[in-house]
């Protein structure tokens, strides 16, 4: 029994059907961790991108260092650090929040590069034309640069959403009851790992296929030369 739901070990199919609602509990946690991690990555990545683009080296350089650190150290190390070290300094978060934070921080390193790449890919001539027309820096950013950068940025960010989802099982090591952890507990108690783990694989495949399709759809729908302004 898990989450108040009994399993039925009388046969393979019956077992699979009975544990599906339990796994869906786990899947719901996986989705929540993915979404929260993604939101953190989107916001903190934007902050990092802005800092890295700062005109003074004293701001840009540390931001670059943080990016490298987040990108080049394993997620598990970062997760353990947040989970086991921060409480020593009085920062105690629930496992779920710590996990989502770790995911978000690591992926912010990637999203920050997506933002920067997307903004820098807008041709220099666009900024020059805006300047020649005396458009303010804010107007230039919001109406010239951003609409042209978004079609490049959004699909790339979408790919990281899929990656985050696939990294959520790492959170199981800090006791988060996401889908893989749930499946493992079912296996531990019933001595049947094959069916729950296969189902986790299948559910993951369905989720990532849906998400990837969504990203591709977005990519085809976004106009290549920028969000149109009539």
């Amino acid at each position: 029994m898990l989450f108040g739901i009994e399993w039925d070990t009388s046969g393979g199919w019956a077992f699979a059907v009975s544990i599906l609602p339990i796994l869906l509990h786990g899947l719901w946690v996986t989705i929540q961790a993915t979404v929260l991690g993604f939101i953190i990555a989107l916001i903190f990545g934007l902050v990092l991108a802005a800092l890295k683009g700062a005109p003074t080296r004293f701001i840009a350089w540390p931001a670059k260092l943080v990016t490298e650190f987040l990108r080049d150290t394993p997620l598990l190390v970062q997760l353990f650090f947040l989970y086991y070290v921060l409480p020593d300094y009085g920062l105690v978060f629930p496992a779920f929040l710590t996990g989502a934070l770790a995911l978000g921080l690591q992926y912010s390193a990637y999203t920050s590069e997506v933002y920067r790449g997307g903004l820098e890919a807008v041709a220099r001539g666009q900024r020059e034309a805006a300047r020649a027309l005396s458009l303010s820096p804010t107007r230039t950013f919001t109406h010239i640069i951003l609409p042209q950068a978004i079609p490049r940025i959004v699909p790339a960010l979408g790919n990281y959403l899929v990656s985050i989802m696939k990294d959520v099982p790492v959170l199981s090591v800090v006791t988060v009851l996401e889908m893989l952890n749930v499946a493992k507990i079912i296996g531990d108690r019933t001595f049947n790992y094959l069916i729950p783990l296969s189902m986790v694989g299948g559910l993951y495949l369905i989720m990532t296929l849906i998400a990837s399709y969504g990203v591709r759809y977005l990519d085809t729908r976004l106009p290549k030369h920028g969000l149109p302004l009539k």
Partner: peptide, 10 residues
């Protein structure tokens, strides 16, 4: 260096 995402009028 026209703005490619804006109509000619815009």
């Amino acid at each position: 260096n026209l703005f490619p995402h804006m109509s000619v009028l815009r």
